[in-house]
Design a protein around this nucleic acid. Sequence first.
DNA 1: GTGGTTGCAAACCCTTTGCACGGCA
DNA 2: TGCCGTGCAAAGGGTTTGCAACCAC
Lengths: 141, 141
Amino acid sequence: MMPDSGFIKGKLAEKGLRITPQRMAILEAIYTLGNHPTAEQIITYIRKIYPNIATGTVYKVLDVLIENELIHRVKTDNDSMRYDAITSAHHHLYANDSNKIMDYTDEQLDAILTEYFKNKNIPDFEIKEIRLQVIGKFLNN
Amino acid sequence: MMPDSGFIKGKLAEKGLRITPQRMAILEAIYTLGNHPTAEQIITYIRKIYPNIATGTVYKVLDVLIENELIHRVKTDNDSMRYDAITSAHHHLYANDSNKIMDYTDEQLDAILTEYFKNKNIPDFEIKEIRLQVIGKFLNN
DNA sequence: GTGGTTGCAAACCCTTTGCACGGCA
DNA sequence: TGCCGTGCAAAGGGTTTGCAACCAC
C-alpha cells in the first residue's frame, strides 16, 4: 500500500494538525510498511529518502498521531512498541514464537462482542473499545 | 489475599522448582498485592521484610515463574510490565486514564469465543489463548 | 511574525547480563 | 558435594527530554 501524498495530507488536515514533511513521511511510512512496524523500522524506512530525520522527532510525531487517533500503539509481552494505522476496528493475531502480528477483522465477531457486553453491562465501567488478542502460532512457515 | 507459605511452596513444588526464600517472597508478593503489580511494587513490598533482595534476582525469578506458568506478564500501551498470578483464564479491563487494570472472568464469554473460533477456523493458525482487552474508563471514582 | 516543530545529544528508566559467592537438594 | 540460584554493579536499549534553531500558518 502506497498512499499518495494527498491522502496523507488529508489525514493530517482532518485533525487540524500542521503539515510538515516529517509528519507526512512518518504517516506514509506506517501506511506503507503495513505490518505493525516498530519505531526503528519506521526510522530506517524514512532515512532512505530523508536521512536527517531525528529519532526524537519520530517519537514525538508518533505521540501526536496517537493523541489525534490517526494511529494506534500495539504492545506485546516481550517486544518493543509497534504502530498501526487506524483503518477500522480490528483485532490481532499474535504469534508468540516469531513476533509476528496480523490484523484480524470480522464484523460478525464485533457484533457478537457488542451484543454480549450490551447484555452484561459491567457496572461503573464505560466501554470505549474491545480488543481481542488471539495468541498462538502460525503453522507451516 | 494472604496465602500461607504452604500454598506458595506447593505452587513451586508442583513445577519442580527449587524452593528458595526469594522465590517464595516474590510469588507471595504477587498473590498479596493482587492488583497487577509492577516489578517495582513487588520489590518495594518484599524489601520491607527482606531488605537485601536484588533487583536482578527479582527479574530473574519473575522470568522463571512465567516460564513455568505460575504467573502472567501483562502489558499496556504506555506502562511498564505488570505481573499477575495465574488462577484461571481471565480477561482484562483497562482504564486508560488511570492505569488501573481489573480482571474480568466470565465463562459464558469464554464459551462464546471458543464457539466462534471453532466455526471460523482461521487457516494456518493454531490458537493457544484468547485474551480480551476491554478499554474504557471507570465511572465515579 | 510567532508559536508550534524539529534536530541533536544527553539523560532516563526499566530490564538484562556476567560473574563470583552462597545455599538448596 | 555439585549445581542452581543469588547479589551486585555495570551495561543495555528503547524511549523521553531540554533547548536552540527553524518553518508552517
